[in-house]
């Protein structure tokens, strides 16, 4: 990826949350390391998938990239500018660049606003265009997300729309500012299966047509396969494997990736999920082991894993794995 194509770049980002005293187990560690040293980049017209179990830090990562939290450490570059310490007007200008689509379209649209006001708000905030220009933009983006005829939806309240239509409105809101970076957090998990594909295809088309950099968070790897060029697997605040999605799904280098992929139930009864690749329960990010984070659940653990945390290794071009198995 050339410098010019890079839209968003995270350099060793960390986010620690303080843990309240009564939840603390030991006295020395009083922080929850939600995100603990991530580096990756996303280019134009490219989507990166972020998968992992709940509590692995994927949503925190997304919020850091959107500058909703301050970073504990590290740097985030958006189109070349450091966004980690933006304030006031500069932060507002960054908001033009990065947008998000939320998981639950029933929650992410203000129930008291009509579709028109929902879509007009971002334009109003950034003082874009006059009344007529705004209306034109709203109609244009509604048609683009497949709500035709757009006129019919302007005066509707969110509760008058179906789940799929609401999620399309949410996508329209994210796109109306013409951002260069789009985060989607489980964009279809609240929708019925039969209409998921439509929303997914729409997202994919928008990312392609507008040459957006996309970040898609999901616990469902089969979904990332359809939406993302590259995918990253997170475990307790670290990326354990990152690479082209198809290669990652087929080759599965990291033991955690193997466990995660094997546990996915298939719609074909002839392929059974497997659970023999992982043991135990997920540990808390507030109480991390000194060596590899995955040590106590790994079926391929070695002596070295207990003491020393592994460093990422590039196994194939663009395919990185963080595991001692591949260290030489």
């Amino acid at each position: 990826m050339t410098e010019k194509d890079k839209v968003i770049e995270a350099i060793n980002i960390k986010k620690y949350f303080p843990v309240r005293a009564r939840e603390r187990k030991t006295s020395e560690q009083s922080v929850l390391k939600a995100v603990d040293g991530l580096s990756f980049q996303i280019g134009r017209a490219e989507t990166l998938g972020l998968a992992g179990e709940s509590g692995c830090g994927k949503t925190t990562t997304a919020k850091l990239l959107l500058s909703l939290y301050p970073l504990t450490e590290g740097k985030i570059l958006c189109n070349g500018t450091d966004i980690s310490a933006l304030k006031g007007k500069e932060l507002k200008n960054f908001r033009l660049q990065a947008q998000m689509v939320f998981q639950d379209p029933y929650e992410s649209l203000n129930p008291r606003f009509k579709v028109k006001s929902i879509l007009e708000e971002p334009l109003e905030i950034h003082r874009l265009g006059d009344k007529n220009e705004r209306l034109d933009k709203i109609l244009e983006v509604l048609e683009e997300v497949g709500l035709n005829p757009a006129n019919r939806y302007l005066e509707s309240y969110p509760h008058e729309l179906s789940g799929g239509q609401r999620q399309r409105v949410a996508i329209a809101r994210a796109l109306i500012l013409r951002p260069s970076f789009l985060v989607t957090d489980e964009p279809v998990s609240m929708l019925d299966v039969s209409i998921r594909a439509g929303v997914l295809n729409l997202l994919q088309r928008m990312i392609d047509e507008r040459a957006l950099a996309g970040l898609c968070i999901s616990h469902d790897l089969s979904l990332l396969r359809y939406l993302c060029h590259r995918s990253a697997i997170m475990y307790l605040g670290r990326i354990v494997e990152i690479g082209p999605t198809e290669a990652l799904i087929k080759k599965r280098y990291h033991p955690y990736t193997v466990a995660l992929l094997e546990a996915v139930p298939h719609p074909n009864p002839d392929y059974k999920y497997r659970l023999d690749n992982i043991t135990g329960e997920v540990t808390s990010a507030a109480n991390l082991p000194s060596g590899c984070r995955f040590y106590n659940r790994c079926v391929k653990k070695m002596e070295i894993c207990r003491e020393i945390a592994p460093q990422p290794v590039e196994i194939e071009k663009g395919h990185w794995v963080e595991c001692h198995l591949y260290n030489n």
Partner: peptide, 22 residues
């Protein structure tokens, strides 16, 4: 905590706007 409040923040809404409009 509602997602639409966060959505408004991501749209660039000021604290004042979020408090009084949302």
């Amino acid at each position: 905590q509602r997602a639409y409040v966060e959505a408004a923040r991501i749209s660039g809404a000021s604290n004042f706007r979020i408090m009084y409009k949302h």
